[in-house]
Design a protein around this nucleic acid. Sequence first.
DNA 1: ACCTGAACACCGTTCAAGT
DNA 2: ACCTGAACACCGTTCAAGT
Lengths: 188, 188
Amino acid sequence: LPAKARTSNAKIVAAARELLESSGVEAVTMAAVADKVGVKAPSLYKRIRDRGDLLRHVANEAALELATTLDAAVRGDDSAQDLERIAMAFRDWVHRSPAAYALLTSPVPETWRVDPELNVRMSAPIVNAARELAGPDAALDAARTFVAFAHGFVSLEGAGTFRLGGDPATAYRRGITALVRTMASDLD
Amino acid sequence: LPAKARTSNAKIVAAARELLESSGVEAVTMAAVADKVGVKAPSLYKRIRDRGDLLRHVANEAALELATTLDAAVRGDDSAQDLERIAMAFRDWVHRSPAAYALLTSPVPETWRVDPELNVRMSAPIVNAARELAGPDAALDAARTFVAFAHGFVSLEGAGTFRLGGDPATAYRRGITALVRTMASDLD
DNA sequence: ACCTGAACACCGTTCAAGT
DNA sequence: ACCTGAACACCGTTCAAGT
């Protein structure tokens, strides 16, 4: 009568994320996830509240990964270059996990939103570098502008709205460079 | 045996858009839309292919409206000020139709995508002003940067990811001003 | 303790039958 | 010509019954 667990929270979330990235959100179905972990759909409800909760877990996992990636991009020697490195690492990560990023940034009912602490961890390296570069007073606005541009660029890129021609990679780099230059001059 | 039409394509799209804005995408249900126009769900299929097609029509309508709004914001006297006016008109429109804007910019299967011509009309006023301000060579990159920032800002704002404190309106205006200044200096 | 089949509600879509 | 009820497939979710 013991009945050992045949799956785990981690496996379920991993399965959901694979489905998300390979076939889109609408493919992360309770039945499909259950199947991937070798169980039937109703069993999932022993570990998660509902489908929204499952997607929130996936978003949280992705957010943690992204935060770690951005952190790893800073060297601490030159804040301007750190910001450019963060920007590139950011775009690379989004290219690797486009569906997860879309999920992470899609407007979602309050209950399913990603852990606020993770939002802080994601923006921390940017805010830190911005503070060094633009001073404490301008740091917040500068970081916000940086994030807005980077997010806007990659999400338009991902939505395929960017068919104006030209190379997106250099357009991105140029935009970031211009922004960083502006942030630095705010200090004067 | 004539059987006059009890509804119309325009009424159906309008009903869908109202539902979208008042209750979110998941509330624009075939049954709910049909009910709003005084008909049963199966009748909708006489006019639209499927739900995706209906949402595409809504997105097209919204895109046309947004394009018109941006057009109305340009005065033609000063390209830098025109860009700032466009930016403000853009944010105001998004605040008025947040769900339609999210729909408009959400990554969607090829078949449901908004009319490419409307994408051109939406970006035209921006590209024109950018050309005047930054010169023909830099215009495209400048417009792209402008759009990326504006889109990124309003969508982060809409997703509630911007809880860093401070006033979003002035942060937005500052960011736009800085961008426009950079665009102008590209000319040198 | 964990799992499952059966059942229910809800939604998109089709189609034969009505006028 | 346009409309509808009935039916089907699909999906999320619950729950009683199995081990």
